[in-house]
């Protein structure tokens, strides 16, 4: 049965890439290169170092933004989850942010902070932070009452209850929030490269489109999607291994 699953995965990849290849050969559009052309462009750009420099550029705002969002988001989330007052004060902000199309803030951020790294980092932050805050505060609030009672009856201090009970109990959901935040951060990072200034992978996409080098454009898009999906899958695997046996739950968007 292991073989069947693997075989079908391969078959499904062959079917999709085959359809791409055929559609490119027909061609359905002058702007639709074949799969093989695109892969050739990907290999070429990988070998000549274009991809490496591009990703160094693209991943910078992503990494900084995600780090800031994770740090601030978990801190605010803990705070909101522990205090009824801060829950009342801050939760509505993040609930609205989670539902709202925050991408609309980008033109304003560009006006206020220019077209540099700051704006891009902020774009990643506003995309990634709400889900991290909401997951963290929800997880803290939902710590099983009997765990906390157990801590108190065995004379744990408030700090011990937070560090030894609440945070470990909440960490699977916090981690899931981080994963969702990183996923949203990828959207933000690419959006900012396409909308604010073309740098990194966004530059390859924009530039090759302008000179009608479609294989390179498709290759760049293929690579960023592949990278994001592989990275997020890796995180999910780590999550499963790390929190085996803990009950798990998600605050989804």
């Amino acid at each position: 049965m292991q073989n069947r699953a693997l075989l079908l995965k391969l078959l499904s990849a062959v079917l999709l890439f085959g359809a791409w290849e055929i559609a490119g050969r027909v061609p359905v559009s002058f702007a639709f290169p074949t799969f093989l052309e695109s892969m050739a462009a990907l290999v070429r750009m990988t070998l000549d170092g274009t991809m490496l420099t591009a990703y160094a550029e693209t991943l910078k705002p992503l990494a900084i933004g995600v780090a800031i969002s994770a740090f601030l988001g978990i801190a605010i989330g803990l705070w909101v989850g522990l205090s009824k007052f801060f829950d009342w004060l801050f939760s509505p902000i993040f609930i609205v942010m989670q539902a709202a199309p925050l991408a609309a803030l980008i033109p304003l951020l560009v006006l206020a902070y220019g077209i540099g790294l700051t704006s891009k980092v902020l774009v990643v932050c506003i995309m990634a932070m709400p889900v991290i805050v909401l997951n963290t505060s929800g997880a803290v609030r939902n710590t099983p009452e009997s765990y906390k009672e157990m801590g108190r009856s065995f004379l744990a201090s408030d700090l011990s209850i937070l560090v030894r009970i609440i945070i470990p109990a909440a960490s699977p959901v916090i981690f899931a929030g981080l994963r969702l935040g990183i996923s949203a951060g990828f959207i933000g990072a690419i959006l900012s490269e396409l909308k604010i200034t073309p740098t990194g992978v966004g530059d390859i996409i924009t530039y090759s489109r302008s000179i009608a080098d479609y294989p390179s454009m498709y290759a760049a898009i293929f690579s960023i999607i592949l990278l994001a999906v592989l990275f997020l899958n890796l995180l999910e695997k780590i999550e499963l291994a790390l929190f085996k046996g803990n009950e798990r739950g998600y605050v989804s968007d």
Binding site: S29, A31, F32, S183, F186, I187, A189, I190, L191, L194, V201, I205, T206, R209, Y214, M217, Y218, I221, I224, I225, A228, V229, L232, N233
Partner: peptide, 17 residues
Amino acid sequence: VFLSAPLTALVPVLMVL
């Protein structure tokens, strides 16, 4: 794959197509 992919990257393709 498409559930977690950054779909913003596909918008330029849609624009040319």
